[in-house]
């Protein structure tokens, strides 16, 4: 699904990603942990092709296509979707309007069903993300992803700031989005989930975990091993592997 080779990327004048190598197979879901400012959001935005993130070196392949120089909309059309950690708002455009022009599911019925599923029905007529609470923003993002239905889903802290009930709702919907309801051998969708707490793992089974520190992947393991390491020792011991 995704192959990242020796990726260097900068934001502004700061080199943030320093030689990332990462492979994600079809149907695989991985978690990405790491201290604040380590470069997790930068990695997801670079995969998405956000213009502020400049690739200095390396390559990104998506389903064997070199997407290193593609714009975000071209990548989205190929099947990459992202849930932003800090989404902006858009005045005068309501959520329903946006949902109906996101390439993917256009039809009204699907939009209503998706909104129902993530409890966003009452927000369809509201301006996109405007005045939304922290948890509402997360649901708005999941709703938009449900409408887009990408193959590779980049989730930047889907559970932070979300109450317990809504974590469960978001978890269930992300499971659906990741195709976890399919039979195991039919699963083709992949995901990268950035998490600080691992709470989302109560709802989503992940295959692997990585730790990203100072722009480098310093550790790889099973999601539980990674989570346990971080819970017990923080990133102290990982720092030594830099």
């Amino acid at each position: 699904m995704l192959e990242i080779k020796n990726l260097y990327a900068q934001v502004g004048n700061n080199l943030i990603l320093k030689g990332i190598n990462l492979n994600i197979k079809d149907g695989e879901v991985v978690i990405l942990m790491g201290p604040n400012g380590g470069g997790k959001t930068t990695l997801l935005h670079t995969i998405m092709g956000m213009p502020k993130y400049k690739i200095i070196d390396g390559q990104i392949l998506f389903n064997e296509i070199d997407i290193t120089n593609l714009s975000p909309d071209e990548r989205a059309k190929l099947g990459i979707g992202i849930m932003f950690q800090k989404p902006p708002y858009i005045r005068g455009v309501n959520l329903k309007e946006l949902a109906s022009i996101i390439p993917g599911h256009k039809d009204n019925k699907v939009i209503e069903e998706n909104a129902e599923a993530i409890d966003m029905k009452d927000y369809l007529e509201r301006e996109v993300n405007f005045g939304f609470s922290g948890g509402e923003l997360k649901r708005s993002e999941v709703f938009q992803l449900l409408c887009q239905d990408p193959k590779l889903i980049l989730l930047d802290e889907p559970e932070s700031g979300v109450d317990i009930e809504n974590i469960s709702l978001i978890g269930k919907n992300l499971n659906k989005l990741l195709g976890k309801e399919e039979k195991i051998k039919n699963r083709v969708k992949s995901g990268i989930i950035v998490t600080h707490t691992g709470y989302i793992l109560d709802y989503i089974n992940a295959n692997k975990g990585f730790i990203l520190i100072d722009g480098k992947i310093v550790c790889e393991g099973t999601p539980n091993d990674i989570l346990e390491e971080v819970r017990k020792y923080g990133y102290r011991r990982c720092q030594q592997c830099k």
Partner: peptide, 10 residues
């Protein structure tokens, strides 16, 4: 905002 919408495929 433009980039946000582009990430959704617009």
């Amino acid at each position: 905002e433009i980039e946000y919408l582009m990430a959704r495929g617009l």
